[in-house]
Design a protein around this nucleic acid. Structure first.
Lengths: 251, 251
DNA sequence: AAGTGGTCTAGACCACCTC
DNA sequence: AGGTGGTCTAGACCACTTC
């Protein structure tokens, strides 16, 4: 009797446990910050080995739905995004009014800038291609909202354009770098944002303090003057769990 | 929470193995499609137990850098994104020229639509709020590029607006639904896209055939006529590994 | 002190792919 | 047939949190 039975795959135990827990989270049965049943609880409830219980929890952790806390438990994850307006926020009125762009984003919530680093560098191949120059000034910094890091950014400017100006000073003054570029007669007029989502590299995980299962959104924004001269190349890395991006445009 | 005071721990073995493999991938030492050292190889090379070798590989898999193939090995992952233009692609010339929007995106590559489903439904709370109606027609479908699913979409239209029109037929004719809305005197003129990135739910994982470690990009696009009437609410779910999104706008 | 998650070992059986 | 990854068990020691 060589005939074998159809291989009617059951889901593995750890997947079924994970599915049940996920349902409880997504249905609202378990709320933000609630404690999930721990490894011991799952071992007892389902009669499985510890590794299997862990495997089930790992699924939810890697999906970004739960966060483990050493010595304490596994918790349902909070999700409080900031709304970031792609088009509106860069409207000229924003920075000509002397306001920082971040006022537009983090309305009401406490925000801060961190780890500011300003350096003159040789441009990478890609930056050199876009900005059409070999030497750039780079402003790197980290943004925090409610004391939690949410974004990394590295703005690149053609060195000859900004050398000796406030663009390369720690404090760029009212309206920020865009207002300063305006002072120099190079007001940004057109923007391109190129956007990807992926899992973070270890450096990004550290700097943004990301739990497992949190993707990042990588944005490259290029700013052009009305004459079409590129004046800024800005690489941003956003904690995806902290953001909703919005773009408005016409047909 | 941000990582608390790092008590100068050494990295666990599995992390160090994962770090070395990641370096080989990111440095280009290992290329797309190359086979990584397997569990047995890692056990021998580092003198660790099987579970530890697996744990190291799991890190890379959950980062989206590697894909396991049963009975075969673990492979470096391919990354061939499609460029999707947020603003330009919806320019009126596109659909008034009778072209499908997808011609703009998947230039040159084979694309297809799949699992088309057209139904009249009661609007969800959110859709009802945005479209200002309780009854909607919904067009659900899946997009494929090079025979691989890359996007799910569900377009919602106010029922009274599109009842009995080509908008709710399988074939919407030249220029697609936007051209048909134009025929009805409701040409879309303004768009809003709201965008998040997160790990997929199991249903999305299945429909898009996503390997572990692949986030999705969820986009909600709302289309408005020149008079400000909302005429479409489109929920899209994109395989993040398959896309680069581009938005162009002015200051 | 007790409980939690983090790491690791040493086995086992299975389904699947490749040769 | 032999190698690969997928699942699972039954232990162990550790660091950390909570009480």
């Amino acid at each position: 009797m060589t005939e074998s039975a159809p291989v009617h795959h059951e889901l593995p135990i750890y997947r079924r446990i994970a599915d049940r827990l996920r349902d409880k989270i997504l249905s609202g049965d378990l709320h933000d910050g609630d404690r999930l049943p721990g490894e011991n609880a799952l071992m007892a409830e389902y009669g499985v080995a510890r590794a299997t219980a862990r495997q089930a929890l790992a699924v939810l952790i890697n999906e970004g739905l739960a966060v483990p806390r050493r010595g304490s438990g596994v918790y349902v994850r909070l999700f409080r995004p900031i709304r970031r307006h792609g088009s509106r926020r860069l409207a000229r009125e924003q920075w000509t009014a002397g306001r920082a762009i971040w006022d537009t984003d983090a309305h009401g919530r406490a925000y801060a800038v961190d780890q500011v680093q300003i350096e003159r560098e040789a441009a990478s191949e890609e930056v050199a291609r876009v900005l059409d120059t070999g030497e750039v000034w780079v402003r790197r910094r980290r943004y925090l909202v409610d004391d939690r890091p949410v974004q990394l950014a590295a703005s690149h400017f053609p060195a000859d354009l900004v050398e000796g100006t406030a663009v390369v000073l720690p404090d760029t003054g009212p309206g920020g770098v865009y207002a300063r570029l305006g002072d120099l007669g190079h007001s940004p007029a057109h923007f391109t944002e190129e956007l990807r989502a992926r899992m973070p590299h270890p450096r990004e995980t550290d700097l943004l303090g990301l739990p497992a299962g949190t993707p990042i959104i990588a944005i490259i924004r290029t700013a052009y003057t009305a004459e079409g001269r590129p004046v800024e190349y800005n690489e941003m890395v956003l904690d995806a769990a902290s953001y909703v991006l919005q773009y408005d445009f016409d047909a």
